[in-house]
């Protein structure tokens, strides 16, 4: 086969992509080279490890539940109530995407501290955010909800507006339109958004560590546990948790991609 320009082009793009994928896979799976199945299984029996993973699951589950409840109305406003300030709303809701998680954690830590009037108000009313699980939920919510809202908004955007107008003339109120048409048509987007925000929340470290105070069994989530174990030099334990976290991400990424493809092919 002659080596024309198009073939050279194909070969180049394939080589570059392959090199990138290979490097990435090696880097990530490299941690498994430093352990053995025996060590891995031994660490799996450690109760502390499961404690932290269970805590991460519990907190991130609460986070996506809250995401679902507040994210759909926010996505609705961003998608259907276009006005002069929607651009501003869009920026504000996407701000956590571009802000460093550490900064977000820091901001929440300061705001919710006892010296701050806002924090003082909450503390006086018996709600403590600093060094507590609810604090972790709060920061993870701030960090993960833009993912959910953006994906759901994209899904809402793809719904035919004329069809919605028409449904109103058939007697559908805004509630009917949301629950009977918009949400059923956005199932894929909502599931993709949940998967994305869940994996974001379960793997979140910087902001979580800021607000958690790293209290064993209470605020020590799995990613924090990885850091703590590493700093003690307990690599086998850190590798085990990191491996589990990686498998979880892979699983949820799979779900996200699957439903995301479905959004595109459905419309």
């Amino acid at each position: 086969m002659p080596l024309n320009k198009n073939r050279i082009f194909d070969i180049l793009v394939y080589i570059i992509s392959f090199l990138f994928f290979a490097t990435l896979i090696l880097l990530l799976s490299g941690i498994f080279f430093q352990t053995s199945i025996h060590l891995f299984m031994k660490e799996l029996k450690d109760a502390g490890l499961w404690n932290s993973i269970f805590l991460s699951f519990k907190l991130s589950f609460i986070v996506i539940l809250i995401n679902l409840i507040i994210g759909i109305p926010i996505a609705y406003v961003l998608s259907f109530k276009k006005s002069k300030i929607s651009f501003l709303l869009d920026i504000i809701s996407a701000l956590p995407l571009t802000t460093s998680p550490l900064v977000i954690g820091f901001a929440v830590l300061i705001t919710m501290g006892s010296l701050n009037p806002i924090g003082k108000f909450f503390i006086d009313n018996g709600i403590k955010f600093v060094f507590t699980p609810q604090g972790i939920v709060l920061v993870q919510l701030i960090i993960s909800f833009p993912f959910f809202v953006n994906i759901v908004k994209t899904s809402f955007d793809s719904i035919n507006r004329k069809m919605l107008d028409l449904s109103k003339t058939l007697g559908a109120s805004s509630f009917d339109v949301l629950f009977k048409i918009i949400i059923p048509l956005s199932y894929n987007g909502i599931i993709a958004g949940l998967a994305m925000s869940w994996s974001r929340s379960i793997g979140e470290y910087a902001a979580t560590q800021m607000i958690s105070g790293v209290i064993p069994k209470i605020t020590e989530t799995a990613p924090i546990e990885v850091f703590v174990k590493t700093s003690y030099g307990n690599y086998p334990a850190a590798i085990t948790i990191a491996g589990i976290l990686m498998i979880i991400s892979l699983f949820f990424l799979g779900i996200f991609k699957y439903f995301n493809y479905k959004i595109k092919t459905n419309v």
Binding site: M163, L166, T169, A172, D176, I181
Partner: peptide, 20 residues
Amino acid sequence: LESYERRTPLVMDEPLLFPN
């Protein structure tokens, strides 16, 4: 009256059936 209260259904140039 809001449009859902008017009972004046619309038929447009496209059928606009609910795909779900």
